[in-house]
């Protein structure tokens, strides 16, 4: 059993790492060169954050490339497949708006390293949220096809939102000692942000769904294993390979 801070750093780092890997899958496949660059820029920001957070928990490279599915502690939202561009944007919309609020609070952490990482990352994530919010509006208030796609994408991602606001026994003591963020307190502001952008996008709030949870304790959807098999291939096939 790892200590609380290590576990918390794994959760923060894995969120960024897995979403970074997902966005990286768009490299060379996005609908426009400009979109390709913007998605991979976001991916690189996230992988950079992951390197820092996982560095608190141990050797970041080893943690990224030599853990199996059950040992990953990311939320289920970030491992969901890219689908079409709209589904990718829906995932980014829910996640980046949450992560921006999270990092804003984390800059106040009593743990100086966490606070410093958050201070650097919050600027990156504010841009990710802006990008995702604007794409939500363009797709929702765009053509009949873009609208249908973003409705479907949001519908896929919606059930993974609740997990972002869960607090368990691992994090509770860290909240009490001022190290971790109490994400429960972010829910109201997140709801408002989501509602504001959806309204601007002329989209309806999706109906409440039964929440899917379990990522924080390693219970993942089938998609994560496939993602890891690609992400970890090189280090598994050629252990210790460098460039």
């Amino acid at each position: 059993m790892t200590d609380g801070l290590t576990e918390y750093a794994l959760r923060l780092g894995d969120d960024s790492l897995i979403l970074g890997q997902r966005l990286g899958e768009w490299c060379g496949h996005a609908p426009m060169l400009e979109v390709d660059l913007s998605l991979t820029n976001v991916a690189l920001d996230l992988v950079g954050q992951a390197t820092l957070f996982l560095g608190i928990a141990g050797d970041a490279d080893k943690l990224a490339f030599h853990r199996d599915v059950l040992d990953f502690k990311n939320c289920l939202l970030v491992e969901q497949p890219n689908g079409d561009f709209a589904q990718t944007i829906a995932r980014q919309f829910l996640f980046s708006n949450w992560q921006e609020l999270l990092f804003r609070e984390l800059t106040q952490s009593r743990n100086a390293t966490l606070a410093a990482i958050a201070g650097k990352a919050v600027k990156e994530v504010a841009y990710h949220a802006r990008l995702a919010n604007e794409w939500m509006v363009r797709l929702g208030d765009g053509t009949a096809e873009s609208r249908a796609r973003i409705v479907n994408g949001l519908d896929w991602m919606w059930r993974f939102g609740d997990e972002l606001f869960d607090v368990d026994d691992v994090v509770e003591p860290l909240i009490a000692s001022g190290v971790a963020v109490d994400v429960r307190k972010l829910r109201g502001e997140w709801d408002q942000r989501i509602a504001r952008t959806l309204s601007e996008a002329t989209l309806e709030m999706p109906k409440p769904r039964r929440a899917a949870k379990g990522g924080r304790i390693g219970h993942h959807s089938e998609h994560l294993g496939h993602l890891l098999s690609e992400m970890q291939f090189l280090q598994r096939a050629y252990p210790g390979a460098t460039w």
Partner: peptide, 10 residues
């Protein structure tokens, strides 16, 4: 807005 963002990223 998209033009500014694309320019920023590129």
């Amino acid at each position: 807005r998209m033009a500014i963002e694309a320019a920023r990223d590129t």
